[in-house]
Amino acid sequence: MEIKQCLECQEEFEGRVDKKFCSDQCRNTYNNRQNKDANSIVRSTNYILRKNRRVLAELNPNGKSKTTAEKLKAKGFNFNYFTSEYVTKNGAVYKYVYDQGFLLLDDGTYALVIKKEYID
Rank of each mutant, 00 (worst) to 15 (best):
Y118C: 01
F21A: 00
D106K: 10
G15F: 05
E117W: 10
R16S: 11
T45H: 13
Y98G: 02
V17F: 07
T109V: 03
I41C: 06
Y110E: 06
A57T: 11
Y98W: 11
N78C: 07
C22A: 01
D107W: 08
V113W: 06
Y94I: 11
L72D: 05
I114Q: 08
T29D: 14
N35Y: 12
N28P: 03
N35H: 11
K20G: 02
Y81M: 03
Y110H: 02
K116P: 00
N39V: 02
P61T: 10
I3R: 08
K115N: 10
Y30N: 04
Y110C: 09
A57L: 11
R16L: 13
G101D: 03
S44V: 10
R43Q: 15
G108R: 04
N90F: 05
G101V: 04
T45A: 12
K51M: 08
S40D: 15
I48P: 01
L56C: 05
P61M: 09
N60E: 09
S84N: 08
A57Q: 10
I3Q: 11
L72Q: 00
Y86R: 01
D18L: 09
T45G: 07
V55S: 10
K115W: 10
Q10E: 15
K71H: 04
K20D: 09
Y110S: 02
G91T: 03
R16A: 15
K115Q: 12
Y98Q: 05
D18K: 10
G15Q: 00
D107V: 03
P61I: 09
L105E: 15
